[in-house]
Design a protein around this nucleic acid. Sequence first.
DNA 1: AATCCCAGTGAAAAGCTTTTCTCAAAGGAA
DNA 2: TTCCTTTGAGAAAAGCTTTTCACTGGGATT
Lengths: 335, 335
Amino acid sequence: MKPTIRDVAKLAEVSISTVSRVMNAPHTVVESKRIRVMEAIAQLRYQPNGFARGLIYKKSYMLGLLIPDIENLYFSGVIRGMQDACIKLGYSLMICNTDRDKERLLSYIDAFYEKQVDGIVFASDVLYPEYYEKLVGCRIPFVLVSSHSDEFDVPSVEVDDEQAAYDAVRFLVELGHREIGMIGFNHDNSVSGPPRYNGFVRALTEAGLERNIVKARFANHRFEHAYHAAHELFGAYPELTAVFCVADEFAMGAVSYLKDRGILVPGQVSVIGFDNLRMASMFIPKLTTIAQPIYQLGYRAAEKLHELLSTGAVAVTREKMEHKLIVRESSRERA
Amino acid sequence: MKPTIRDVAKLAEVSISTVSRVMNAPHTVVESKRIRVMEAIAQLRYQPNGFARGLIYKKSYMLGLLIPDIENLYFSGVIRGMQDACIKLGYSLMICNTDRDKERLLSYIDAFYEKQVDGIVFASDVLYPEYYEKLVGCRIPFVLVSSHSDEFDVPSVEVDDEQAAYDAVRFLVELGHREIGMIGFNHDNSVSGPPRYNGFVRALTEAGLERNIVKARFANHRFEHAYHAAHELFGAYPELTAVFCVADEFAMGAVSYLKDRGILVPGQVSVIGFDNLRMASMFIPKLTTIAQPIYQLGYRAAEKLHELLSTGAVAVTREKMEHKLIVRESSRERA
DNA sequence: AATCCCAGTGAAAAGCTTTTCTCAAAGGAA
DNA sequence: TTCCTTTGAGAAAAGCTTTTCACTGGGATT
């Protein structure tokens, strides 16, 4: 069996209180005993029982993370950032992958509740009233990352999707493109879908290219859907010389489609992505894209949650982080 | 504050024992009270305190997973499989990303110990004696996935790396290639590095192409390293018409390099990868590769750990899963 | 020399649940 | 009617740690 504090006390011939003090306030116990206790601890490889401590502290020093799709590199980055922040702040991290399944998400919240996580980071998904109710019902503090809520007053960290999309399309316009399409996220169940579309519309309107506004097709997070959307888009609008894709994975899907059709990227069509995944610079051609500070988003979300947990509030509720245009090889001036 | 079993008991006007029975053995309590209790539970949204239960059961129903690099799609797949198995088996999952850092890994084991995880899955890394000692010292059962140990008797699940590499190279030989190189894993700190190299050697030897054995360069998990390794390899052996890469990410690095040099894939050089990441079919050209059953590996590892936890032993210690050659576009018969 | 203070330590309670033990009441059999 | 069995339910202990409280003895103060 695992050794307990009693075993240590017995071996060191002191009371359990003394052992506890050696671990939590070493200076209050006289050196001779302290050494004896520490030797006993080392000898037995004693480590306090997390359950018992949790019961007392009413804290688990564990945070929960809910992500929609672990196979999306975007979230890997968020996880890394969050995990590093957790190490700094003294938390453990419990990561749950919902696969965008509502039931699953709800049951993960139950698991979090039962495991008594101190707080939850909720990534990239729409915060449905259902989720919100459940979370506040459980009295678990939480923050949103790459998401926000207009309906409820919930702390969040994200980039300015509208502005970022605007910048992407503006860039294409400045390259001289006049026929610009878009592959966006389906608007239902999507947080960033609408604002990114709005950014697209605003940039086009500003440039007097309103005729392009209809040239958008929508897809569902995955490469294959984007491939299909590209097929529809270029089928309907073969005149396009540039596409704005709201995710790097979509950009890859679009490039793949164009390649299969024998259309050169960036020779005939420029493609710009969004996210700046690690893969963006590995793809051929390397993707021009709007970079999100993915790692920092995760890091900051954990910090913000910590702030919420320790002070009970948060200085700024809806926090924006900077995006940045990164020009690589998938875009070019219009011939 | 979170409601406790006392609050429920008070509201339902029964003893706490009765409440507990309603939750754990409902048929032993008379219907009238049972209903009252269940209403009280629903009303208060009561959920038992995991700490208190853990203290009694001496189980957390939580498994730990140690992975070297969360940004590697290989591990995302393993995680998905493992998480699905965990749901089926009633475990929660705590995922820790070591970033291949020894200190970090060791401190995660401490965290697991303190959180009283029931068992650990250790992914893709060499099981150093240091780790082994610590794990057995903590009396935490564990299994290896995509790894194994010759030194210790530890349950593991993986593919047959040597045979898989052999199959890959054999395939290139059968395509008529006679000048075949390899980009492998650095052998130090690598589990699959040596066997995959051995498979390469065996296939070449069998085909009477021993002269190619020296045509191998080694890299460190990441795309950029593989790019660099490709540079060295083709610098030294420009006659190569095929390369075996021990990871899809390496294959992408190699293709990138060749592309930058103006060498056509598969026109002039065939490239075969390993893993069959989701990305392999998104890349241009789509990668020919040796598929590992990544999801199943993770799934099976969790099942195996469960077996170990519930029966105290495991039917077969070193378990192999099937690999499979998947031919796509990055390979071609030698002209 | 008497009093006070303080450092150091042990005993005990608290935190929440499950489970065992005990008890009471009800129902059935003789 | 009485005794036994069965069913249902409460009291209490156990699981492990932290923390509060109380006690002891030694040093300092007056």
